[in-house]
Nucleic acid binder design. Structure first.
Length: 200
DNA sequence: ACAATGATTGGCT
DNA sequence: GCCAATCATTGTC
């Protein structure tokens, strides 16, 4: 049975929320068209004791969504891309790093804007296997920063479709691409899932 | 006002 | 594995 995740689901420390988000379905309503994918890789970011977290230095104009409320989006740009976090217990958050495409795969291909050559050999695996890639494939931009993910009226929300992920299928490792606080095992992904951005 | 930086990606070696 | 792309945000002057 399909059930939308509510605010109390999100309102816990990001380290506890992150593995619970694995297997849930991220839904994008793009002008009425549904694009969706199962979450297969995430990372938790804390605050006070986590130098890699955007919330580490306190609230700024950029990260104000982290200080808003559990279940809101936090979307920011990095280099030439956007990334999507869900706000957990304020101001911690969970970065969505990879999806297994479900609905709207043709639309994802269109939004990724791949070259004809890249499109020809693009398997579904490369469409959403990274935080920047999945934002592009789902048409997620900074305009959607701070929106409420707990309502089906929103342009982005997350569903539980009844998929049950066994504990034994959750792999926990160090986070990717950060220069500080590298030692923490705050990255979680689904074992043997080909849509994760990388192994180990 | 200006310089440095980055929770990434894609292409090339 | 290494590196450039490219720009919003941030800190400093």
């Amino acid at each position: 049975m399909m059930q939308i995740l509510n605010q109390s689901f999100y309102n816990r420390n990001a380290i506890r929320l992150a593995p619970e988000l694995l297997g849930k379905v991220l839904v994008r309503n793009l002008n009425g068209q549904i694009i969706s994918g199962r979450i297969v890789e995430v990372e938790a970011y804390l605050a006070n004791q986590d130098e890699a977290a955007h919330a580490f230095k306190g609230e700024t104009k950029r990260n104000k969504s982290l200080f808003s409320k559990p279940g809101n989006s936090y979307i920011y740009s990095i280099h030439t891309h956007f990334c999507l976090d869900v706000v957990a217990e304020v101001p911690t958050s969970v970065l969505i790093r990879a999806l297994e495409p479900i609905d709207g795969i043709d639309k994802m291909k269109e939004l990724r804007n791949l070259s004809a050559e890249a499109l020809a050999k693009a398997d579904e695996k490369s469409l959403t296997s990274g935080p920047g890639k999945l934002c592009k494939a789902l048409g997620i931009t900074k305009e959607l920063d701070g929106i409420d993910l707990t309502s089906e009226k929103s342009e982005i929300y997350i569903m539980d479709d009844g998929f049950k992920l066994p504990e034994s299928k959750i792999i926990k490792t160090k986070r990717v691409g950060i220069s500080k606080a590298k030692e923490f095992d705050y990255r979680f992904y689904i074992k043997e899932n080909k849509f994760v951005s990388r192994k180990s």
